[in-house]
Amino acid sequence: MATATVRAQRRTVALRRAFAPIAEARGFARWMLFAGAAITLMFVILAAFAPLLSPYAFDQYQANGHRFAQLARPGHGHILGTTVQSTDVLARIVYGAQTELEVVGLALAFGLAVGVPLGLVSGYFGGILDRGSVFFMDAMFAFPPLLLAIIIAFLLGSSVSSGVLVAAIAITIVYVPQYFRVVRNHVISVREEQYVEAARALGAKPFTILRRYVFFNVVQNVPVIATLNAADAVLTLTALGFIGYGVQPTQGAEWGYDVSRAVTDVASGIWWTGLFPGLAIVLLVSGLTLLGEGLNETINPVLRRRAIRQVDFDAPSFDAGAEFYEA
């Protein structure tokens, strides 16, 4: 047997096993999962193909030497209208998706990279390290998230030039305690499992045990909180942008910033500059939340509900026996 095909087969089995709960999801959970995934995917496509999908650049206020009209109504030439700075609202939405996803993606990656290992080590080894990190993380968790993000953005703003990076770091620090807590608490229960002691009895080193025995049984919950946190992070980022501490207008389009600029427009009956970025925020946040909750209900065995086949006493019973008898 070719080993390559055997390996491939084994991988397929492992993958199918990992995704089995998703395939088996039923009812409301399935609906949430798919609606959330579709909405999120739409924004990912917007972000990835922004230059192709957007008619103009995010900060473009002229084309072919003509300056765009200020506050043009949605319609001809500018499907969603223009802003007070003459930029195209649609372009700001499309490029805004890019900014949001970049920042949130980076923040997630940083947060997981810091929070998960820290939670694993802290929970598994315990002792003074654990008590110290728990105290520190709890202190951070107790801080109002937005305030924390503002302070960090403010502190980093002068030394780090990339606005996306500043925002991502600020948001990372807000969410690290959550990953830490979830992972640590789960590790503490897994640590007492018999198979962990069995691994120790086999002579495995502590880091081997962490890697091979604890890690996989702990990370199952992480996708759920990561997705839910992503939804929350979008809100934090747009709030930062709204009060002027987010991604700077010169560095990228950002919906929160756009909404803040649009506040004054509304009084004069100009609705499109605020409505569309606002809608984009709501849609992305809802999409991520649906995805997270859907994942939660499918992965979490307590909430999991599978479609059962109703009992039917009158269903025909199996009658293969007759044939057996003939043979």
Partner: peptide, 17 residues
């Protein structure tokens, strides 16, 4: 020296084949 535990359901890592 090795050990076999009482509960076979708990002594294998569910995430390993």
């Amino acid at each position: 020296m090795q050990i076999v535990f009482q509960d076979p359901h708990a002594s294998l890592n569910p995430a390993m084949t």
